[in-house]
Design a protein around this nucleic acid. Sequence first.
DNA 1: TACACCTGTAATTATTTTATTACAGGTGTA
DNA 2: TACACCTGTAATAAAATAATTACAGGTGTA
Lengths: 106, 106
Amino acid sequence: MEALANPYRLKIIALLAGRRIHVSQLAREMVISRPLLYMHLKRLENARLVTSKIELSEDGKAMNFYELIPFAIVLSPETIGEASKTLTVQKSAGTAPGTKGEKGDK
Amino acid sequence: MEALANPYRLKIIALLAGRRIHVSQLAREMVISRPLLYMHLKRLENARLVTSKIELSEDGKAMNFYELIPFAIVLSPETIGEASKTLTVQKSAGTAPGTKGEKGDK
DNA sequence: TACACCTGTAATTATTTTATTACAGGTGTA
DNA sequence: TACACCTGTAATAAAATAATTACAGGTGTA
């Protein structure tokens, strides 16, 4: 979900639709730096939305090609209701101040 | 899109599914503080996923009830491709260092 | 009046996310 | 060897988000 919460990442998916592109080429098409692209690609990989595979070009150069993992997600109050059962708010525990122990609040 | 990129906000939608709840009650059910809840609600409102309406309870207390605006969004490479045409990366302009003018990079 | 509810918001701090800079190392060709 | 490509990552800076604290003000009831 958070994986799709960024315009660059949406654009990566758009550019990857139907074809495979290697990192440097993708960086050029997006007009962003490679380190930044790597960061976004990592997020997409973690979310299982893309995969990569290193291949050797005709000359001996290693190229890392990315491609989409097909997906179709429907977002509606119902599907979110289902999904939210799974979700957790990481971090430690902690009570919720300002919610129960208040005597009139001030 | 970013509006749904947070577990609390997903939970708000889950809790709001089918019923209307006022702010304080919602804060209790979610076990978070009201200020935090307000922040998340504001984001959901900006994304047009929820609306609020202030009503007076039987005794004269003002209650701000929130409810869902029905929605159903399909996320797939195709729909994202469409959507990404619209999107922009705010901020100023700026070139993309490390992408074109490099002479061998180091 | 005190208390238990309700409404909000401004200011600050903490945390996460995004983005840049600076590296390090590989292959092939002129 | 220099150059033009390719691969990556560690460290840092900048910006956006999330969360807390501290207020301010309202109604109704004991």
